[in-house]
């Protein structure tokens, strides 16, 4: 029985940085990302016996993460309604003149996207989930994932600068 717990700790420790990166890029809020990852791994512990038996544990954990994020968002929207107004902080766009700035600017580009679009981008391109797994994680159709991805890519290219992106692509 200690083995399973060890297995859990090993899995989570290895995946923690990537889970946290995923959560942060999806929500853009460091505290919320911490909270959501903490909640996700707690729920994972509770369900570890069941989860560790599924084929694709990573996909399953991503699904948990997305659900927790949506739950948290719902909760904070409810709070906003309750307390009147609580505008989301806007991040200033970073100057796109070196690679570091571009790395930061992808964060600010994400900040301008609707939640669904940033979620698809993160799941498909950071977490490398398939179309089907992304759809399953988000609880929507594959067609919906495709269209959200297309729109998100257009928006991100606009923010990052079309010329630079295509310049790099053809190099």
């Amino acid at each position: 029985m200690a083995d399973a717990e060890g297995e859990f700790v090993e899995y989570v420790s290895a995946r923690l940085p990537s889970l946290h990166r995923t959560a942060f890029l999806m929500c853009g809020d460091a505290h919320l990302a911490d909270d959501v990852v903490q909640q996700t791994i707690t729920a994972l512990y509770v369900n570890w016996r069941r989860v560790s038996r599924v084929d694709n544990v990573d996909a399953y954990v991503h699904r948990m993460l997305v659900h927790k994020l949506v739950d948290e968002k719902r909760l904070s929207w409810a709070k906003v309604r309750l307390l009147g107004s609580m505008p989301e902080p806007r991040r200033p766009p970073a100057p796109p003149d070196d690679e570091l700035a571009e790395r930061d600017s992808v964060v600010s580009a994400l900040a301008h996207l609707p939640r669904g679009q940033r979620t698809v981008l993160v799941l498909r391109f950071l977490c490398d989930l398939s179309l089907a797994d992304t759809a399953a994680a988000m609880g929507c159709s594959e067609g919906n994932v495709k269209s959200q991805t297309a729109r998100a890519l257009v928006a991100v290219r606009q923010v990052l600068g079309v010329s630079e992106m295509s310049g790099r692509s053809t190099r």
Binding site: V9, V12, S13, L16, P17, H20, R21, F24, L25, A30, A33, D34, V37, Q38, I41, L100, R103, D104, V106, V107, L121, V122, F125, L126
Partner: peptide, 13 residues
Amino acid sequence: LRSAQVPEPRVDV
């Protein structure tokens, strides 16, 4: 996305 600057996780296993 892989190289974006993200804050240090404060998560406790």
